[in-house]
Simulated scan of single mutants.
Amino acid sequence: MDPDAVAEVSRVPHGSSDDVNLVDFSANTNPERPPGAACAYESAFAAAGRYPPDDYTDFRVAAGEYVDCDPHHVTPTAGGMAALRLAFGVTVGPGDDVLLPEPSFGEYDREVRLQGATPVAVAHDELLATDPADYAAVVVCNPNNPTGEASDPDELRAYLADCRAADTVLVADEAFLDFTDYPSLAGEPGVVVARSLTKMFGLPGLRAGFAVATGELADRLDAARPPWGLSTPAADVGAHCMRQSEFVAETKARVRRERERMRDRLSAGFEVFPSDAPFLLLGVTGEGAAGDADALLRHARERGFALRDARTFETLDSHVRVAVRRPDENDDLVEALLSFP
């Protein structure tokens, strides 16, 4: 991290509501948790009185099985955000340029600036057509947040080959990829994959995730990671969750079914973007659309729902993002949104 850059970088807004009176559609986390997760947490508490083994063998093995890569290529981190910071920390420095999708997760821009580098934005749906030469790194968010679409696997791998030829690191944020049937880039040379256990397993407060890389990139990640960077409860619960294949399959099926049902109904009142993720981006159209977005957020809140104001994402000026939750909650939200004037 570049000390001279820190003072110039501000915080980034995110979704999530702590109002217990609202159903939180602003954060894209699973409202369900895997069976046995609470027991795994309670069992881990007894071991929390001593430092965790710094090799995190069981967590690495579970993560390797989860994304189909060599466990030795897994670097445990305190959430996907920590994996991204580590990835940028070992690949980007002052004076570098980094290519980012737009609109997309705001932390990419922030983390690049914290390294003293310059973020260069390109339309998210044009990123794989760019030339990666002259960039220290390129970031792909797959599926993209907040638009929701996943990259074509063949096009993504072809672009990774271009990055390798240009000696440019590809940083792949796969926070929502486990809601799809697309393969991970984990274990491919020339890429750092960042994964989060927050979204699929509904445990944002646990702070568990990991990075995956091979060769010299893997060596850099392992050398730079902090000691005991994952708590014992996070490591044990994370390993338990990643082995719950039935839960993952059921969640994917529910999200896919509910997302399409919500999309069909919400299309009657909003521009609804195609999505492979556990959320939908809605465009509020018409005269005074930006003001209507404010009114829509208030309308939803008055009826007990927190939505994500997507206007905090660059290039979006009249949009909201809604998560895909349980069927009855989704029905109630849709009814509330379609009653908006």
Rank of each mutant, 00 (worst) to 15 (best):
R254T: 05
S10E: 10
A239Q: 02
P153Q: 00
E246Y: 12
L338N: 06
Y51D: 13
A249C: 00
A235H: 00
L206R: 06
G93S: 09
T251C: 05
V272D: 00
L156E: 03
M1E: 14
S196Y: 02
A161W: 04
A48C: 14
G269T: 01
M262P: 05
A123N: 15
C39S: 14
Q244V: 02
H124W: 14
D54C: 07
S231Y: 01
A123F: 09
P53K: 08
M81K: 12
A150K: 05
V284R: 08
R113C: 10
V334E: 11
K252H: 07
A63N: 06
G93H: 12
R225G: 02
F313R: 04
S245K: 12
S10W: 12
Y108M: 08
S196N: 02
T180R: 05
N330C: 15
H299P: 07
L84T: 06
L266H: 10
L217P: 08
F179D: 04
G304K: 01
E8I: 08
A218W: 11
T91H: 08
N142I: 01
D54S: 07
A165I: 03
D96L: 01
D317L: 15
N145G: 02
L217N: 06
D294S: 14
A123T: 13
V138K: 00
V212F: 13
V90Y: 09
V322E: 01
M262V: 11
R325G: 02
D173K: 13
N21T: 14
D97P: 11
D292M: 13
A117H: 02
E250P: 09
A48W: 15
P274A: 08
S275Q: 04
E65P: 04
A336D: 07
C163Q: 00
P132Q: 07
D222K: 12
D332L: 09
V122Y: 04
V171E: 13
K199T: 11
V169C: 10
D24E: 02
L217Q: 05
D332T: 12
R301C: 14
S196T: 10
A293T: 11
